[in-house]
Amino acid sequence: MNKAQSLRVRVVLSVVAGVTVLATAGCGTEPTAAEPRMTTTVSAPDPGAQNGTFSVALPGSLAADFTELQQGLGGSAGLAIMPVGGQEMVTFGNWSTGPAWSTIKVPLAIAALRNSASYASYAAAAITASDNGAADTLWASLGGGADAAQAVQNVLREGGDVRTTVPKTRIRADASIYGQAEWTLADQVRFASQLPCIPQSERVVGLMQQIIESHHWGLGTFGSAEFKGGWGPDQGGKYLVRQFGLIDSPTGRIAIAFAAQPDSGSFSDGMTMLDKMATLISGHLTELAGGHCS
């Protein structure tokens, strides 16, 4: 495909709760007004929407370029995109779900600061430096166990994530309780799209723009990004590396969630994969719809 050619796909989203959006793409030149646009039917995990359908213009050249990029990444990767305050979602790639790892520290910090502003320094360390000890203190401040899990889930629900559950007890001896929450990219990007709109989220969103320099890979390459990363090995020692956050576009703010699981299992290779995906996104910002809180 000639990258100078324009490619468009129109997706009709049939609103069905609990089903991940699947983005599809085809190649071709921009159709004239008389030519029909390609369509496909997919489902949107939006139980809050009215029954019926709505249309979203899929950024076609990004879909094509992502497919091309993924062929050389050397591992599994996934990407989900939504406008802030919006309902339209597109997803790409062959990775869709896994442990939240430290990305779950965002709703955890919001819940803890709502409970008591005295934990501000722990929230700052948990977000900006991904400090596990500080995050454990935040978890304990919410009562630990079922109480803490419910408090974090309540924040997720406010952000439109109606499915993710936070464990009440430790799943793995070498990992935090909360970090092993299964968090799909679709649910994570939906939460991100509402994150700045959630009451009392401002302090944590601000901390997401103060991430330490050594964590400035992936979304960290965008100067205005508010983001949080998470990473850790599976039982076989192979790393999953993921991030989510907010970036600027010409039309507003965009929520991004992406993840990489390199075939090598290396953390550094996972970071490199996210860097490459971030570079790809930066070249397609004009195709992506941004938004704002209502």
Rank of each mutant, 00 (worst) to 15 (best):
N94L: 12
N94M: 12
W95T: 04
S96A: 15
S96K: 14
S96L: 14
T97C: 08
T97D: 13
G98P: 02
G98H: 06
A100T: 03
A100D: 01
S102L: 02
S102W: 01
I104M: 15
I104P: 00
K105V: 03
P107T: 03
P107E: 02
L108F: 04
A109K: 05
A109T: 11
A109L: 07
A109M: 06
I110M: 12
I110P: 00
I110H: 01
A111P: 00
A112R: 00
L113D: 02
R114G: 13
R114T: 09
N115K: 15
N115S: 15
N115F: 11
S116P: 02
A117G: 12
A117C: 09
S118F: 12
A120C: 07
A120H: 09
S121P: 05
S121D: 15
Y122A: 15
Y122D: 15
Y122G: 03
A123F: 10
A123K: 08
A124H: 14
A125S: 13
A125T: 09
A126L: 13
I127Q: 05
S130K: 06
D131Y: 09
D131Q: 07
N132P: 03
N132V: 14
N132W: 09
G133S: 14
A134D: 02
A134I: 05
D136S: 14
D136E: 14
D136C: 10
D136I: 10
T137I: 14
T137K: 13
L138A: 03
L138P: 00
W139S: 02
W139M: 11
W139P: 01
A140F: 10
A140W: 09
S141R: 04
G143S: 12
G144S: 11
G145D: 13
G145E: 13
A146W: 04
A146C: 07
D147S: 15
A149R: 00
V152H: 02
Q153P: 00
Q153T: 15
Q153C: 07
Q153L: 05
L156M: 13
L156C: 09
L156W: 05
E158L: 15
G159F: 01
G159A: 02
G159D: 06
G160W: 03
D161A: 10
D161W: 04
D161H: 07
V162K: 05
V162M: 12
R163G: 06
R163C: 06
T164G: 01
T164M: 04
T164A: 08
T165Q: 12
T165Y: 00
V166L: 04
P167A: 11
P167Q: 10
T169L: 12
T169R: 10
T169A: 14
R170F: 05
R170K: 15
I171H: 11
R172D: 14
R172G: 09
R172I: 09
R172M: 12
A173W: 08
D174V: 11
D174G: 08
D174R: 08
D174P: 02
D174F: 08
A175H: 13
S176A: 15
S176D: 14
S176M: 13
I177S: 01
Y178Q: 11
Y178H: 07
G179F: 03
G179E: 07
Q180W: 09
E182V: 13
E182Y: 10
W183S: 05
A186S: 14
D187H: 06
Q188L: 09
V189M: 05
V189A: 05
V189E: 00
V189C: 04
R190P: 02
R190C: 07
F191Y: 13
F191E: 01
F191W: 12
F191V: 02
Q194W: 05
Q194V: 06
Q194C: 09
P196W: 09
P196I: 12
C197R: 08
